[in-house]
């Protein structure tokens, strides 16, 4: 059974992680990357774009859920279940790419630039899920 029952749960949990990160020191790292990344998820179909290239005034980055005209530098494609495991820090990125569980389109330098930016979120995600009463997803 899929972790998320529909797109709104994806946006609440993973989209919420990015919103929660705006008040975390992590937001500065995301802002410094100046990269726009689109995450395309399946099962359930959903999409989140985090745009640090064109942030709204006074904010480190913009978050778009679903379709958007924001043009990403990097597009990451995976099942929402894999995304959930990834943000919990339980997915080896190299292994996931090798097994075809993830696909990344865009300059490899930009993709690699994201790795140190993403790492601190692995601690924040389970903490955030607990904050919103979704401890059931922290396994």
């Amino acid at each position: 059974m899929a972790v998320f029952k529909d797109a709104s749960e994806v946006y609440e949990c993973i989209g919420g992680l990015f919103r929660r990160a705006m008040t975390d020191p992590l937001s500065q790292k995301v802002a410094d990357s100046k990269i726009a990344v689109r995450f395309n998820y399946s099962e359930p179909d959903s999409a989140i774009t985090v745009d640090a290239k064109n942030p709204p005034p006074g904010q480190p980055y913009a978050i778009y859920e679903g379709e958007t005209s924001a043009k990403p530098d990097v597009v990451m494609t995976m099942k929402a279940d894999i995304a959930h495991q990834f943000w919990l820090g339980k997915v080896n990125l190299v292994a996931a790419l090798a097994k075809g569980q993830m696909k990344a389109v865009g300059p490899i330098q930009s993709i690699i630039k994201l790795i140190p930016v993403i790492k601190p979120a692995f601690e924040l995600y389970p903490q955030y899920l607990k904050e919103i009463g979704r401890s059931d997803l922290v396994q």
């Binding site: 990097v74 790419l97 090798a98 075809g100 993830m102 696909k103 990344a104 389109v105 865009g106 300059p107 490899i108 993709i111």
Partner: peptide, 8 residues
């Protein structure tokens, strides 16, 4: 073809 896991 810039990316990872694109040519399979």
């Amino acid at each position: 073809y810039q990316g990872l896991g694109l040519i399979n």
